[in-house]
């Protein structure tokens, strides 16, 4: 069964009184264990699509289902639960909570899931070791490099064992080497743990490393290529 199933998805929003068609009929399936990217030029609709998949935005029409369940009509609380338990997020600007250190940032998601303190600490420290931040666990984001912060963000996204990780331009703020190392890490997690990754990107390196590339142009899928 597909993790994500999108049928005839459209999104129109109002921009100073002008209707803008961000998505004009998307049909897409993402299967379990994929390592895929949605690419396209600025304004092509890739971030809008990722936001709708992540339950952060609602489509104007069409359906989107996650693990067989249509999420279009979910209320804010149900969407919160969905984002907490089934989706992991990685943002371009890392977006860690600045007052929490690395391990607390990772633990935070587990706290929201109601997992006990000792279990939280154990799982968060194991994940941070996996992403190579064993020595940086007690550092706050301001004391970590961009690459390290994004690794913490990866750890935070996967610690709750979500069905899919959505990464919006994860390498955009990183240099070539750091970005490459981060992609290696995510690819390894994909292979080793079977975690499904879906990127939104216009970074060529991400496109090259993805196993499937969905190319959007003007709100429709222009190309869907599996390597």
């Amino acid at each position: 069964m597909s993790i994500i199933k999108i049928e005839n998805l459209k999104k129109t929003y109002d921009s100073n009184g002008i209707a803008v068609n961000a998505l004009r009929g998307i049909n897409l399936k993402i299967e379990n264990g994929e390592f895929s990217a949605i690419a396209g030029p600025s304004g092509s609709g890739k971030t809008t699509l990722l936001n709708i998949i992540g339950g952060l935005d609602k489509p104007t029409s069409g359906t989107i289902s996650l693990s067989g369940e249509i999420i279009n009509d979910y209320n804010p609380t149900k969407l919160s639960d969905l984002r907490l338990n089934k989706i992991g997020f990685i943002f371009q600007a890392y977006n860690l909570i600045p007052v929490l250190n690395a391990i607390e940032n990772v633990e935070y998601v587990l706290l929201l899931q109601g997992i006990g303190s000792s279990e939280r600490t154990k799982r968060a420290s194991n994940i941070l070791k996996e992403v190579g931040l064993e020595k940086e666990m007690n550092r706050k984001p301001a004391k970590l490099s961009g690459g390290q912060q994004q690794r913490v963000a990866v750890a935070r996204a996967i610690v709750s064992e979500p069905e899919i990780v959505l990464a919006d331009e994860p390498t955009a703020n990183l240099d070539q080497d750091t970005g490459s190392a981060l992609l290696d890490l995510m690819h390894e997690l994909n292979k080793k743990k079977g975690i499904t990754f879906l990127f939104s990107t216009h970074d060529v390196m991400v496109m090259d490393r993805s196993e499937r590339l969905v190319y959007l142009r003007d709100g429709i899928i222009a190309e869907d290529k599996t390597k």
Partner: peptide, 13 residues
């Protein structure tokens, strides 16, 4: 922005 991030990763109101 930070509160938005917290909500996007599943923090309830």
């Amino acid at each position: 922005h930070e509160i938005g991030v917290m909500k996007s990763i599943g923090t309830k109101p």
